[in-house]
Amino acid sequence: MKSVALLDYGSGNLHSAKRALDRVGADVEVTSDPKAALAADGLVVPGVGAFAACMEGLLGVKGDRIIDQRLAGGRPVLGICVGMQIMFEKGVEFGVEADGCGEWPGTVERLPAAVLPHMGWNTVRAPEKSVLFDGIEADTRFYFVHSYATQRWEMDVSDTLPAPLLTWAEHGGDFLAAVENGALSATQFHPEKSGDAGAALLKNWVDSL
Rank of each mutant, 00 (worst) to 15 (best):
A126E: 04
C81M: 09
S147Q: 04
A114P: 00
A126R: 09
M55Q: 01
A52I: 00
V157E: 11
I86P: 02
P164K: 14
S11R: 12
L14I: 14
G63C: 02
N122R: 15
A178R: 10
P34L: 06
G120P: 01
D207C: 02
S158T: 08
P46A: 12
D41A: 11
P112W: 05
G102Y: 14
C81R: 12
A186N: 11
A177P: 04
E180W: 05
V48M: 03
A53R: 12
V48Q: 03
F142H: 06
L71K: 14
G83L: 01
L165T: 01
Y148L: 00
T187C: 09
D68A: 15
W121N: 01
G10H: 10
A50E: 03
R23I: 00
L184Q: 10
S147W: 05
F142E: 01
Q69D: 15
V44N: 05
G74P: 00
V96A: 14
Q69H: 10
D134I: 01
V124G: 04
M87T: 12
G10Q: 02
E137F: 04
L58D: 09
Y9H: 08
L176H: 00
G25N: 04
G198L: 13
Y148T: 00
V145S: 09
H15R: 13
P162H: 13
G79R: 06
W153H: 09
D207M: 06
R125D: 14
G173T: 02
G106R: 02
A36W: 05
E29T: 13
E103I: 10
E180T: 06
F144M: 03
D64C: 09
A52G: 04
L78N: 11
V77Y: 09
K18C: 09
K35F: 14
P112T: 02
I86V: 15
A177Y: 11
L176S: 01
V24H: 08
G10E: 13
T123E: 14
A20N: 10
H171P: 02
E29P: 01
G49R: 03
G60L: 08
G173Y: 06
L78G: 03
V24Y: 07
C101L: 15
G102P: 04
